[in-house]
Write a protein that binds this DNA or RNA. Structure first.
Lengths: 163, 163
DNA sequence: CTCATTTGGTTGATGCATCAACCCGGTCGG
DNA sequence: CCGACCGGGTTGATGCATCAACCAAATGAG
């Protein structure tokens, strides 16, 4: 009905393959995490970051840098995680609360991380093999750089990310 | 704090690069679509499918096959799109309604598709270049196949997708 | 000193995604 | 026939992501 083609056929196919893979892999991993461990991918990301910190405690701000989330998403999500007992906010440094991994949160991440990683290996790392994996890694970095570049050069200064 | 490593270093790096790219590209494209045209990526996907159909009308079911969405997601989303005038549900075939692209929906997709495609080209297709793009396309298909395979072989029959 | 700005963070509203439950018209075994 | 099941579709509840607005401590220029 709209008969223009917007990418050539090979490009179109590759792009759509990529989109399909992205969706399929993401939903599969998310569902697995959810059903086996009751964690969302977001929970997982926070827990990984906290558990990799030597002290198990970070400022929300640092988590924001590590994950690249918006601050409001972070705030909302940390509140929900606190309610479930995975983390705790401690108002130790006068002003800003620190986010602390609870015993329960630590157990959760220890239980699910190796299994989750095994799945990533089975369905992604091993399927690609080392060569293609390396190519993809570099390509990913290039794309991220290109987007950063694009933002810097062609965006009006204060309007982040919309253009 | 949790000192086991779950993938080796190269694998870890490639995987995380991929995750970062996925997030960055997705949010960039989504934001662009939203701010310039008031469409979500989901809207876009539906509109593309409808506009590629010769008649501009499909059953919800066909859309489901094309997009791989859950039926309930489809239903909810189509209702929202109808409210905004992008599509219309017509109860022509006795039983199941057909989803029809409205004039407004057609205009929307015609306006945004080429610009969106150009952005995909600039930030993804051209950054990768034809060789890496081809590799990624194949790799994506392999991953999707691996997941399908996994579902078929190691899932109890009726429990789709959780394992 | 004072008032404006920035910075880190919270809140509320809205739209989106998912799950579970349900509905309804066919179909098929009995 | 009749009742069980099945496929396409809707609904409601819940959690998640984003935007815009707000808040309060710190900074800093006049």
């Amino acid at each position: 009905m709209a008969d223009e083609r917007w990418l050539d056929e090979d490009e179109q196919n590759a792009w759509r393959s990529y989109l399909r893979m992205r969706r399929t892999l993401e939903t599969h991993l998310a569902r697995h995490l959810q059903r086996e461990f009751g964690l969302s991918e977001s929970d997982f990301e926070i827990l990984v970051n906290l558990s990799e910190s030597p002290t198990g405690r970070m400022r929300a701000f640092e988590l924001g840098e590590a994950t690249q989330w918006e601050k409001s998403r972070m705030s909302h999500h940390l509140s929900r995680m606190e309610k479930r007992g995975l983390i705790r906010k401690e108002a130790c440094d006068a002003r800003y609360p620190e986010i602390v991994l609870t015993e329960q949160g630590l157990e959760a991440i220890r239980a699910c991380a190796p299994i989750h990683a095994a799945r990533v290996r089975d369905l992604f790392v091993d399927v690609l093999g080392p060569d293609r994996l390396a190519v993809l890694g570099e390509a990913s970095d290039d794309v991220v750089d290109a987007i950063d570049e694009h933002q810097k050069t062609s965006c009006p200064p204060e309007v982040r990310g919309y253009c």
